[in-house]
Write a protein that binds this DNA or RNA. Structure first.
Lengths: 194, 194, 194, 194
DNA sequence: GATGAATGAGCTTTCATTCAT
DNA sequence: AATGAATGAAAGCTCATTCAT
């Protein structure tokens, strides 16, 4: 039983990688199964459909990022420092596990029809959004961040990071992603701080 | 000959709309041709492939937005005011011609393989980026904007706007898109201003 | 346009033959297309699904038999003679166009799930049943047939003929099908006559 | 060993039910095994293939009906009464154990390819047919029934009953099946009697 | 005997593209 | 220019059967 759960996670991780590289529609079930050394028929013993696989993938990513941001939220740092921590987490993930961010940007955000049954609204990225919300609201409560509409702040933060990772993926950035952390964090703080 | 050029534009506009609504892989050539009242065979008299059609579409969008931003750049307004004008243009386009922004976010940014032969790097959105670059560099030259890495600024500006339109498209924003213009412009100015 | 209608009929006739020979689930779309010298992709330019093809087939058969029975109904013969004519039509069809009766017995009657959307109840065999009903009611009106429940009579008539054709198909009958016409008609008349 | 025989019968009974409900090709081995609370692998310890299972099912049904008809044959009743008894047995089975008759009509009669190796001709329904034959020949010997070709009589009897149960299954009969027993028996007797 | 993961062939259906008309 | 029938490769998914445990 435990084994089956482990295998499911292995499959999600493998599928995630392929989806992120080639997109949802260009990744075929035989591709995914093959990359895991299994037959495509067998894959259906673990997941009922390709869509379900993609939905599990986005849940996995949301959880992965949420765990790391939760640590930041639980620290005693200032909002300015927390911004930098979150930017770092995001960029390090983009560097070390690029499929995570790429899946998010290129599969989840773009192929909404794949997620419309089972991941309506933002239910499958809820964990992640919740942590960003906690970060923001604590900053406001501590009078370190301006009290503005959450989505206005959220759009800036996440749109910005997503945009940078996209430029990075397109090899449009002249320097390594990490070298932008300081400037970007400063820009975000200027926008959101009191 | 002139006629043929007009018909090509009509086709691009029609294809653009369908691609934006249903995504690249879910839009079929018969779909596109049908929505234009023509046969799929005939469509191939104007474009050699589905990819070419998508590439023309992104060029069209880039040009469409560039023209409007050029007007802003040519005005005598302050950078603070220009930011607001650009945000307004972007949001008004998202409201009145949603396919333009949606194609950009959901087709161009996500199905990179479609654009890898013919739109490498950013050549197909060059016109648009150039105008943003002009806006930024003039602001720096006038000492209204801080002199920072262009991509750091660009990522913030465009990532932010894209993020907001995405949230809007997902019906996650409680208010109309335009009502955020003021706050968002302020956030951008705080981040980029001197 | 007319051509397309003709081609559709050709396809129905071809599919009908295969379905009758091998059953619905053992007849594959490539089989059907191949037997008609066309590609399976092209078949979908004429019919939207395998089910639709089967439904058109039963409508075709129902119409084919109804036309022939209508001629009997329009004749001035006695009910006793009409019974014999109908039995003859049924058996001659079974001999000359065996796929018609076989499809009816082995596909339509047995794979009800295939017909549940679009041929609910008996709507796709309505034409045929209507003619049998006319035969019966006129016989009753003329006081040649006993006035009994229609289904009691219909079940006998059609169950009997179907049963004989089944035995014939299984090569269980020692003699040719036609040589039973006289005896069977007599049995039916004994059962239904006044 | 005796246990194994019992388990085999249980499996046949369970498979029979599923086959009758969903058809042969729509019933999967995991379905059948699952409905019996066993694994599909284990089912293969009892039967070598899906086909074998279906063949055992029809043998079981043939035997089930034969036993009941044998009782009728062994009674001292007239042919007219025996007809009514057989009709009643058939209809009561259709009501109380519908899978028996449904399997016969919808699986055995229709998917001949499944039975072509192992149940050629009528060998798997031999027991049942033999009893009907005994009924008929005794009736002829007693001069209660006309001396006609056995198949002519058999086709009427069984085709009729099968047709009525089919109409019943399609919910086309306005009344309960049993209420037709009297009329149908009368029709059969008129057809077959001296 | 019992399990269920694994296989792999085969299914229906889709669709970009071609080409005779 | 215009049509749409035709192709054929490939997709997602199913399932009887096997076999290591």
């Amino acid at each position: 039983m435990e084994e089956k759960r482990d295998r499911k996670i292995q499959i999600v991780v493998g599928a995630l990688k392929l989806f992120a590289e080639k997109g949802y529609y260009r990744s075929t079930i035989p591709d995914i199964a093959g990359s895991l050394g299994m037959s495509s028929g067998n894959l259906y013993n673990y997941f009922h459909s390709k869509e379900e696989l993609a939905q599990e993938a986005i849940r996995y990513i949301s959880s992965y990022l949420a765990i790391r941001i939760r640590e930041v939220n639980e620290s005693k740092k200032s909002s300015r420092e927390k911004i930098e921590d979150i930017v770092r987490i995001y960029f390090e993930t983009a560097r070390d596990e690029p499929q995570m961010i790429d899946f998010f940007l290129r599969v989840y955000l773009s192929n909404r029809e794949v997620f419309s049954d089972g991941c309506e609204g933002m239910v499958c990225v809820n964990e992640f959004i919740t942590e960003i919300m906690i970060f923001f609201e604590e900053g406001v409560a501590n009078e370190e961040l301006r009290n503005q509409d959450f989505f206005t702040a959220f759009g800036l933060f996440m749109g910005y990071l997503g945009g940078m990772v996209f430029l990075y993926g397109e090899r449009m950035l002249p320097k390594a992603l990490e070298s932008y952390i300081e400037d970007i964090s400063e820009n975000i703080y200027r926008a959101l701080g009191v």
